[in-house]
Design a binder for these strands. Structure first.
Lengths: 292, 292
DNA sequence: TCGTCCCGTCCAGCATATTGGACAGAAGGC
DNA sequence: GCCTTCTGTCCAATATGCTGGACGGGACGA
């Protein structure tokens, strides 16, 4: 880490300490943009219900006028939408979100690779990326299972209760994991969710030795997941992870090892930057039956 | 000079003044936010390739420092990501995009309804919304066809060459359509794409009489689509449309009418606000077996 | 019907975000 | 190897966006 980065980190730390819990608004050089991002977050949490400037201002502890101006700008840009007198998320977010997903090489490759897996192609496979202490789900391969028990794309889940999260965390140093979870309370979605950071670190050690992670009804009762890590291709690109989701009744002793093997094949393929070059943004030109 | 001429001159002047800012940046009350949105658009067009502040500033005709500040704020918020010295789209866009998609009632209903269609559930069905003269694709039901010839979610396509677009446009007044396409050149993706606004308006008249729209190899050679309109539930919510995509060889005379009927069923269900109330945002609290 | 409350919008003064230029550093061409 | 020509970052001065309060309008309750 450069000294400049250290300085920035220090300053952020100080400011966060000063605000003591309010919104994490470090004094950005473009406050309006930072606030706009916070507003979008708030609108996302609202789940489709429109929120007026007054409500937003109250919940953010910011001046009402300022919020109104920013919201108007967001609406003009299509990032928000005026519904009645309030605001909701706008269409352009779908466009930008799709563009982001399309820009991640691993995602393109993921979809292709899942179809070619021998056993796993029938199952629900997901790709996620570690972000702080949570996982953001980026892609999903729906097997032939009629039940749709998977989270939707773009959704975030705590890393400590998911197979993807534990696989991604296990690819990090123990120090780094401890640092990230400093002062974070582990959420318990089921009785089996890991309750403490100590339990998490111990489980990660098991994951490292075993080569894959397991979520044994820690997110949802009756559902198990297996996960493997996929390193990012550029520094600073958080570790990715893929997982297979199963109803516990389907996790038989002969089937699971095959699925694990498929996961490792998938991870190997997504880890290899060479494949990225091949099937990356210019993939349209490539066909399996391509011959001169 | 008459007052009428003055008015025309004034309006032209105003338009020129608007365009003078290169991008359509009307002087927003929160310019930083508007610029941030334009930057995100530009990054999206870049397709995953990082762009530095200088390049962005040149392409937008804006000061370099300002861009750098806004980009830094975007990166802090997670809406952009620093890769090396440049910027790309950030993860949070996937999150917000997913939240937007989850907030649109029609989308939730769309996925459920597609599974229940008798004939159409095997095909590729898409849901899109009209935005200006383009369609934004919001949801996709992949049938059992192995070929993945569909556009991805969040992608935009010209309304004049797609079945969804023509269905949505046909639900508007002719005046409104003419107004939207004023000064817009119709793109020609194939030889059969409608070349002029006159041809488009004539086709829309056919659509209105027939009850569904057809894209006969106007987007991609060898591919046909059928579309129906779905009215928005709130005023200002642009018309939606659903379409079924087929390889032309599969569009047989006995199959197409069944698919059209399925589309109409789908549209009817998505148009009914009652269904929206049932499966809408508060669905988590509702259970069929719920008893006091 | 009236009164009360709250909401969204508008306006002028101040603080501050924006800006243009200058700086160090890296890549590329000769 | 050297020079040219980019890049990204930093700084101070100014224009400008942000802020707090006041206004009109609608919803709800009495």
């Amino acid at each position: 880490m450069t000294s400049a980065e250290n300085e920035v980190a220090d300053r952020e730390l100080a400011v966060v300490a000063d605000l003591a819990g309010e919104i994490g608004e470090a004094d950005s050089l473009a406050p309006a943009v930072t606030r706009a991002a916070v507003i979008l977050d708030l609108l996302a949490e609202n789940g489709g219900v429109a929120a007026g400037p007054s409500e937003l201002a109250r919940r953010l502890g910011l001046p009402k006028s300022s919020i109104a101006n920013i919201c108007a700008a967001l609406a003009d840009a299509g990032l928000a939408r005026r519904v009645g007198t309030g605001f909701t998320l706008g269409r352009k977010l779908a466009e930008l979100g799709g563009a982001y997903l399309a820009s991640v090489d691993q995602i393109q490759e993921f979809y292709d690779a899942c179809h070619e897996l021998e056993v796993g192609s029938d199952e629900t496979i997901q790709l996620a990326v570690l972000d702080g202490t949570e996982m953001t789900y980026l892609a999903r391969h729906d097997g032939r299972q009629p039940v749709r028990l998977t989270s939707q794309i773009g959704r975030r889940l705590p890393a400590s209760v998911t197979a993807t999260g534990k696989a991604a965390l296990a690819s990090l140093d123990t120090d780094e994991v401890a640092r990230r979870f400093e002062g974070v309370e582990l959420p318990t979605l089921t009785r089996r969710s890991l309750p403490t950071i100590g339990a998490l670190l111990a489980d990660l050690e098991v994951v490292r030795g075993r080569g894959y992670s397991m979520d044994d009804e820690e997110t949802v009762e009756g559902v198990v997941c297996f996960g493997v890590a996929i390193p990012g291709r550029e520094p600073g690109d958080g570790p990715y992870a893929a997982s297979i989701t199963l109803l516990k009744a389907r996790a038989t002793f002969d089937r699971v090892p095959q699925l694990i093997a498929d996961l490792h094949r998938l991870a190997e393929r997504l880890s290899d930057p060479l494949h990225g070059e091949w099937t990356g943004q210019a993939a349209a030109g490539r066909r399996d039956d391509q011959r001169p």
